[in-house]
């Protein structure tokens, strides 16, 4: 048990690898459109209209974000509910990924909907 929970700092690793740089460019691109959405409206940046009220947007939200989260929670279930001790090592990173997944779903949905006042009634 003790050997499994032995966190150690990762040392001498460059953060900006080519992969991270490419992903950062994609993310910056997304941020530009995020600002565009709050200036020109959701229709202008997504090309959605009354005939296509939902588009790729929902696919990325739901298919990517929620699916990412599901994997993390399944790993957590393996480790903590079924007590398969050998999976404990990956439970934390998996749960972090899951949390990020749902966070981005929430941010994506918030960007999408546009009417925020009724959300005050939701019991968080």
């Amino acid at each position: 048990m003790e050997t499994i929970h032995n966190p150690a700092q990762i040392k001498n690793v460059t953060f900006f690898t080519p992969g991270v740089i490419i992903l950062s460019i994609i993310a910056l691109n997304g941020l530009v459109f995020l600002f565009g959405r709050f200036i020109f409206g959701i229709g202008a940046v997504t090309n959605l209209n009354n005939f296509y009220p939902w588009g790729l947007w929902i696919g990325v939200d739901v298919a990517a974000g929620v699916a990412l989260a599901a994997g993390g929670f399944t790993s957590a279930a393996l480790g903590h509910v079924m007590h398969r001790e050998k999976y404990h090592a990956i439970v934390r990173p998996a749960l972090l990924t899951a949390m990020l997944g749902y966070t981005f779903v929430a941010i994506g949905v918030f960007t999408d909907i546009g009417r925020f006042a009724p959300l005050n009634y939701v019991e968080w």
Partner: peptide
């Protein structure tokens, strides 16, 4: 609602940023 409606009737104020 717009996805659900069999007659494609509900419309959305796409040009509005907040409170469409």
């Amino acid at each position: 609602c717009m996805v659900a409606c069999p007659f494609q009737i509900p419309t959305f104020e796409y040009e509005k940023t907040i409170q469409p």
